[in-house]
Deep mutational scan, measured.
Amino acid sequence: MATKAVCVLKGDGPVQGIINFEQKESNGPVKVWGSIKGLTEGLHGFHVHEFGDNTAGCTSAGPHFNPLSRKHGGPKDEERHVGDLGNVTADKDGVADVSIEDSVISLSGDHCIIGRTLVVHEKADDLGKGGNEESTKTGNAGSRLACGVIGIAQ
């Protein structure tokens, strides 16, 4: 089992970053940390998408990683996509320092995120509470600013 993974985020604009993942036990939580720069100040949706395909930019990554066919939600919700990591918060300089621990994603097994795409979005994720159909699919997080395929790390 891989215990570490990394993702280099890039987009068409100024947004870029490096996100690290570490899972010490196969059924334990995954620590997610790193930094994203070039964002507007505020909240930005942060999700693992189904495919590791960036051939047409971030759009070819498909929908959120959702092997259990659930509705979109927040990272602490029972009803959520596996890939729903909530929001990252950018400061006035456009930098989001990421520090998350998640017990639904994994670096092995059915919820493995390796080979899938991590995406940072234009807007805040409403965590499935926006009151419309799009909220239950995407959290109304808007366009995909930057993305990268999650790969095994040393």
Rank of each mutant, 00 (worst) to 15 (best):
K31G: 03
G11M: 00
P29R: 07
I18T: 12
K4F: 11
D12V: 09
G142V: 07
D125I: 13
F65S: 06
K137R: 15
F46S: 01
F21R: 01
E134I: 05
D102A: 08
D110V: 14
K76V: 12
I150R: 01
N132V: 10
I113P: 01
D77P: 08
T3H: 04
C147K: 05
V6R: 12
E133Y: 13
K31T: 11
A2V: 11
V15W: 03
Q23R: 01
T55K: 14
N20D: 10
E41T: 03
S60M: 08
F65I: 06
H111Q: 14
S60F: 07
V98R: 01
H111L: 08
T3M: 14
L9E: 03
K24P: 07
G13I: 03
L9P: 02
N140M: 07
G130Q: 08
I105N: 07
K92H: 06
G73K: 03
L85G: 01
T117S: 14
E122D: 10
S35M: 05
V88T: 02
W33Q: 14
T89A: 13
V149F: 03
G17K: 01
G42V: 09
A96G: 04
A146S: 07
N87G: 03
G42T: 01
A124Y: 13
T59F: 08
G17V: 07
S103N: 09
E50R: 03
K31S: 12
G13T: 15
I150M: 03
L43D: 03
L43S: 04
D110K: 10
D125K: 06
G131Y: 07
G45P: 13
S106C: 08
V119S: 11
K4T: 09
N140A: 10
K31C: 03
K24N: 14
I105A: 03
V88R: 00
C147E: 14
S69G: 15
G139S: 07
A124Q: 12
W33F: 08
K10H: 11
G94M: 04
H44A: 02
R70P: 04
V82I: 12
V119M: 10
T138W: 06
A90W: 02
A2L: 05
V15Q: 06
T136V: 12
E79P: 14
S106A: 09
A61N: 08
A5E: 03
G74W: 08
H49N: 07
K31I: 12
S69P: 05
F51D: 15
V48C: 04
T117I: 13
W33R: 09
L43A: 10
I114M: 06
H49S: 07
D93W: 12
N87M: 08
E50F: 00
S99V: 13
K37L: 08
E101L: 11
E122I: 01
G11E: 06
H49D: 06
A124F: 13
V48K: 00
L68Q: 15
S99N: 14
D125L: 08
I150W: 02
K123G: 09
K10I: 09
K123M: 10
G142F: 04
I100A: 05
T59E: 05
R116P: 04
L107K: 02
D91S: 09
D97V: 12
G131W: 08
T138M: 03
P14E: 12
C112M: 11
V8I: 07
S106N: 06
G52V: 05
E50K: 07
T136M: 10
K4W: 14
L118Q: 04
D126F: 09
G86C: 06
S60H: 08
P14A: 13
D91L: 06
